[in-house]
C-alpha cells in the first residue's frame, strides 16, 4: 500500500518520466540505463515509472520489475533527506563498522535500508568507500566521517536536528513578521 502523498508525487512525475524516456531508443539494452536515469532524477524508481518504462521498451512490466529488483542500486521508496551510509567493507568490518551501524539504527529507531517515518534520515550499508585507512567510516550526506566511534553518532544526528529547528524557527519568525506586517497594514 502506498502513502497518499507518495502516490500523488508519483503522478506528478509522470510527464517528466515520459520526457526522460524520449532520450532513449526502444532497445532492451537501454533498460538499466533508463532506470538509472530515472533514479538519478527522482531518487527512486516508482511503480508507475516501471510501468512507463515497460511501455516505452515494449516489454512486460513484470520484466522491468524483475530486473529492477535484482540490482542493489535501485530504490523503490523515496529516501530520507539525509542519507547515512555506513561502510561495512572488509577493513571497516574488522574494526567494528557493524557497531557504528547499530548505533545509528538504535538512535534513529530504524534498520539499515529503511527511512525514518518523518523521512528525515535513511540508513544504508555500503562496501568499501576507499578510505580504509580511516576505518571505520560513515558517510553522512556528502561528508566522510573517518575513525567513527559510537559516541560520535549522537552528535551527528543532533547536529541535523539543531539545524532543522533553527530553520523552522527562522521560518516561523518570518511568518510571524509577515503576519505582523499584514496586521499593521
Amino acid at each position: 500500500m502506498s502513502h497518499p502523498s507518495i502516490v500523488s508525487e508519483e503522478e506528478e512525475s509522470r510527464e517528466e518520466i515520459i520526457g526522460l524516456l524520449q532520450g532513449f531508443s526502444k532497445g532492451r539494452e537501454n533498460l538499466i540505463p533508463i532506470l538509472q536515469t530515472i533514479q538519478k532524477r527522482h531518487s527512486y524508481v516508482s511503480g508507475l515509472a516501471m510501468k512507463l518504462v515497460a511501455e516505452h521498451l515494449e516489454i512486460s512490466s513484470s520484466e522491468v520489475y524483475g530486473v529492477a529488483t535484482f540490482y542493489n542500486q535501485f530504490r523503490f521508496h523515496p529516501p530520507g533527506r539525509h542519507q547515512i551510509r555506513i561502510c561495512l567493507g572488509t577493513a571497516c568490518h574488522v574494526v567494528g563498522g557493524d557497531i557504528i551501524l547499530e548505533n545509528f539504527e538504535r538512535k534513529l529507531g530504524i534498520r539499515e535500508g529503511q527511512t525514518t517515518p518523518d523521512r528525515e534520515f535513511s540508513i544504508e550499508r555500503v562496501a568499501c568507500v576507499g578510505c580504509c585507512a580511516l576505518a571505520p567510516v560513515a558517510i553522512v550526506d556528502e561528508a566522510t566521517h573517518g575513525h567513527m566511534a559510537p559516541s560520535r553518532v549522537e552528535g551527528i544526528i543532533l547536529g541535523f536536528q539543531i539545524e532543522k529547528e533553527r530553520l523552522e524557527r527562522e521560518k516561523q519568525a518570518e511568518n510571524s513578521e509577515e503576519k505582523e506586517l499584514g496586521e499593521n497594514l
Partner: peptide, 22 residues
C-alpha cells in the same frame, strides 16, 4: 554503469546485465 551486483563481475552475468536482463 553496472548496477551493483557482485555476481555481474562474472562474465556471463555481466553480459546478461548489458543486455538489460537480470
Amino acid at each position: 554503469e553496472g548496477s551493483g551486483a557482485f555476481v555481474c563481475g562474472e562474465e556471463t552475468a555481466l553480459i546478461e546485465s548489458l543486455e538489460g536482463k537480470r
